[in-house]
Simulated scan of single mutants.
Amino acid sequence: MILDLFRLNNRLLSAGDRLVAEVGLTSARWQILGTIAAGDRPQPVAWLARDIGAHRQNVQRIVNELEAEGLVSFEPNPHHRRAALVVLTDKGMQAFEDAMHLQIPWVNNLAEELQVRHVETTHKVITEVLRKLEGDDE
């Protein structure tokens, strides 16, 4: 199962890269923009990295690229001088929304012929394994 999940992850990243290339994104950039968009408040890079289970340095590099392209900006963090908060710009929100619009037919195609109960069971298993792995990180 683990090897299949690795393969699935790689295929999802490759397919995602192809899907969002036309809006100037990669799967990694799309994931970070989505994490920022889903947040209920701006977060520093370290928190974004924690939320997606990635190394802070990798997320910092991508966030710096997104900032250089005007997709995100940094705001002062009232709780930590050196850990600026990452905020989507209007351009960044538009890029994220464009990517999400592209993914709707893609996801619908992937979901064709899948039974809802199987998707729900798979989600429960993945969530439980992820919870256990996150517990190992502490």
Rank of each mutant, 00 (worst) to 15 (best):
I2W: 12
D4R: 15
F6L: 14
F6Y: 13
R7I: 06
R7G: 10
R7A: 15
L8D: 10
N9I: 08
N10M: 08
N10C: 12
R11Q: 14
L13T: 08
A15I: 05
G16K: 00
D17I: 02
D17R: 08
V20Q: 01
V20E: 00
A21K: 10
V23L: 02
A28C: 07
A28H: 03
W30Q: 09
I36G: 06
I36F: 00
I36A: 06
I36K: 02
D40R: 12
R41S: 11
P44K: 01
A46M: 11
A46L: 04
L48C: 03
A49Q: 11
R50H: 07
R50N: 07
D51F: 05
I52Y: 00
I52T: 05
G53T: 04
G53P: 06
G53N: 03
A54P: 02
A54G: 04
A54E: 05
R56V: 12
N58L: 14
N58Y: 07
R61S: 09
I62A: 10
I62H: 04
I62Q: 02
E67S: 07
V72K: 00
F74E: 15
E75Y: 04
N77F: 05
R82E: 01
A83G: 03
L85K: 00
L85T: 02
V87M: 03
V87I: 06
L88W: 02
T89H: 00
K91T: 05
Q94M: 01
A95K: 01
F96W: 09
M100Q: 07
H101K: 11
I104K: 10
I104N: 05
W106I: 01
V107I: 14
N108R: 09
N109V: 09
L110Y: 11
A111W: 13
A111K: 02
E112V: 12
R117Y: 14
H118S: 14
V119Q: 11
T121G: 13
T122Y: 15
T122D: 15
T122P: 08
V125G: 06
V125T: 05
E128K: 13
V129Q: 05
D136A: 13
D136Y: 15
E138Y: 09
